[in-house]
Write a protein that binds this DNA or RNA. Sequence first.
DNA 1: CGTTCACTATGAACTCAGTTTATAGTCGCG
DNA 2: CGCGACTATAAACTGAGTTCATAGTGAACG
Lengths: 180, 180
Amino acid sequence: MSIQHAVLGLLQEGPRHGYDLKHLVDRYFAPDRPVAFAQIYATLARLESRGRVALDAVERAEGPDRRRYAITEDGRHELVRWLDEPLAPEPHLQAALFTKVVLAILSGRDVTAIVDSERHAHLARMRELTALRRSAPVPIGLLADYALFHLEADLRWLELTAARVDDLRTNLKLSTEDHP
Amino acid sequence: MSIQHAVLGLLQEGPRHGYDLKHLVDRYFAPDRPVAFAQIYATLARLESRGRVALDAVERAEGPDRRRYAITEDGRHELVRWLDEPLAPEPHLQAALFTKVVLAILSGRDVTAIVDSERHAHLARMRELTALRRSAPVPIGLLADYALFHLEADLRWLELTAARVDDLRTNLKLSTEDHP
DNA sequence: CGTTCACTATGAACTCAGTTTATAGTCGCG
DNA sequence: CGCGACTATAAACTGAGTTCATAGTGAACG
């Protein structure tokens, strides 16, 4: 969902063609891993089919032609709507970490080993990000902070879960039995 | 990705048919929002086409026939692999909240208003979850904790970002100018 | 001088997850 | 008997993202 809004947002400043947008999106929103060109073109096609952008002109420059797109009134509305409404809450209650712990318990594997290995992977990633944060410009630094806060949240949850594995095990066992 | 593994995990205990799996998945992994039946059947079809499950038998019971699926050796391998490897780190560096703040700055809207409204939505959601956590059984309580930790992480990041909006604005402005 | 490389620019075709919609059988109820 | 509730599945579609194909220009190279 977010790349659509990113593209709309960039088109607000004026019409652009896909190739250009790709670089802008990379610069502003994806400083770590660039988006694929094809994704931008696909996104533009979808936005066009919903009437949120429209073909503005076809420029012939050096090299192949450029198809320049402009944001429509509809597109502007959608963008403002998205900015003004709070984000839909993530379905945190479907967390992959939780799935792992439950499956580990159900399949009788060593839960603490699994929790430990997740913890180590998290700590390693946090060290990377801390380094990045120090060396990078403000926007990337902020993104790194975002990731760090969430990795820390995962860690806290892992501690809590590790402490409650026995509790959890009993609860899951119980509900295994009472099913049709 | 996670629903595939959830289904595989449940099939470890013995062959099941889709309808049954749907309820088990709901019970163990999605206590908040149930998954659609069709998604389970689609998942089973995909798992089958990759050789991770196989049709075990077609039972005729009261009502329509039941297609019972069993996990294969391949499926078991995949499951163990997934449990033993740490989860792929989430692409946190593409956070929707970040996109919003950047777009708010680029389009000259009131950033603090937007940040405030996100904060309020988060606080409201946290109150709901805290209530849920008190009344619910252990597994759901743990999921609520997971969500709470992450909402708190978002809040911390929002504070930090609010404090650095000016910094961010300057940085973004600069890079607007130096592009081809 | 041709050919190979790098860069600009786009789109078709495919995969994969998830949703909407359709189908079909059984059971019980009024 | 007709209708709604429950069991059970699948086809068809949507939307995001990836892989692969194409096509033009300019510069470098032997």
